[in-house]
Amino acid sequence: MRVLQFTIPVAHEKNIIVQRDVLPHFYPHLHRHNEIQLTWVQQGEGTLVADNNMHTFRGNEIFWISDNQPHVFKSDPSYFLPRSKKKIHAMMLFFNPVGPLAPLFELQDTKGIKAFMHQHKGGFKLPQSQVADISQKMLRIRDTSGAVKMICFLELLQSLYNIKDLVSLGAGVQSNIPNEHEGVRIGSIYNYIMQHYEEPLTLEDVAKRAHMTPQAFCRYFKKHTRHTFISFLNEVRINEACKQLTAGSYESIANIAYSCGFNSVTNFNRVFKTVTGKAPGEYVDHYFHHVETSFAPEP
């Protein structure tokens, strides 16, 4: 995947960076950076693209993005409407595992944490049952300084290390550092598809947007994303359908299918099972039987 190389805009003397964002929407471009990123989405919803995989995100969820892992937290299209008053609230913790902190992870007592970071190059999502504890540890890091901050940071990493049921986000296969032109181009294509998935998008439409012939676009898109145009569009649409199905209330499966860009319920059911491995009804039953809810509002 070709993405923008991103520099975290903070003072260079800081080894552990905590950033709080309250914005109309998340940063909308595919990017990566040298730092590991732990993101607590306090308020907001949308789609997380990590490597070439898509995941729904909602408020009070925490995600680990590995160093140099391509990603974007793409807010729902409703956040980009002209009169939208929606806001996202998020707290991010950044640290570079091979920067000034590298000697810390060479100590005998922290080699397990170093192995943990290497094992999770694809990133992960925390189980909901762990969000309250980890978010409180993030707040303690934010509110401390000096040696106390470092102690809290190590406690956070040790707690993450002890969690067994982490949900992987991506494959963890990292490509070479891209040039900026390619990052902007593929990011623009992703953004266009994710903002117009509910429309009857065609290959010709998106190829024209990318200033390519359909044949050239197919080769380009598959090379840089390992998806075909149709497989990516289907995943975006099914990801949106999953959000609507698990939101708690909906009129019918048919309404969801049409609102997500499918032209028939039969086609929707077929694609849904191909992407998720379950029929829509089975997916909902599984979700509400296995997902715990817990809330940890920020003080």
Rank of each mutant, 00 (worst) to 15 (best):
N176V: 09
E251R: 13
Q195S: 10
G172Q: 13
P9R: 12
V184R: 11
P127Q: 10
N162L: 01
I62A: 12
L156M: 13
A11G: 14
L101Q: 03
I230Q: 15
K111R: 13
Q37V: 15
P77F: 03
L201S: 09
C152E: 14
F63N: 10
F116W: 05
F73D: 05
I62H: 12
D143N: 13
C260K: 05
C218H: 02
A254L: 05
D285G: 09
S75F: 07
D165Y: 01
D165V: 02
T110N: 15
I88D: 06
S294L: 09
K74R: 09
I65L: 15
V41K: 00
H120R: 05
A147E: 10
F73R: 07
P200T: 04
N239W: 05
A210G: 01
K125P: 00
G44M: 01
S84G: 01
G172C: 14
S168Q: 15
N234K: 10
P97R: 14
A50K: 08
E182S: 14
K149H: 03
A132R: 07
N96A: 05
K149M: 09
S168A: 15
V41W: 00
A296G: 13
K208A: 15
T276R: 11
F295D: 04
T7K: 15
V206G: 03
H289P: 04
H31S: 08
G99D: 00
G59H: 12
V10K: 12
F288N: 11
H71I: 01
I177M: 06
A257F: 05
L201R: 05
D205E: 08
P70A: 09
R140A: 04
K86P: 00
A216G: 03
G261A: 08
S84N: 01
K278Q: 15
Q37I: 13
V284C: 08
I193Y: 01
I193G: 03
N52D: 06
K85P: 02
V236H: 03
V41N: 02
L203C: 02
L201M: 11
F232W: 03
H25D: 05
I256P: 11
L126R: 01
E240N: 08
E45Y: 07
Q69F: 02
A132S: 10
N162H: 02
Q130E: 14
G248V: 01
S66G: 14
R2P: 01
W40F: 07
I134S: 14
H196F: 05
R219Y: 11
T47Y: 02
V22Y: 06
F57L: 12
H196V: 04
A90M: 02
P103D: 09
A210R: 00
Q130D: 11
N53W: 10
G146F: 11
K208D: 13
I253A: 00
G123D: 04
K111Y: 02
T110P: 09
E13W: 13
D21W: 04
T293H: 10
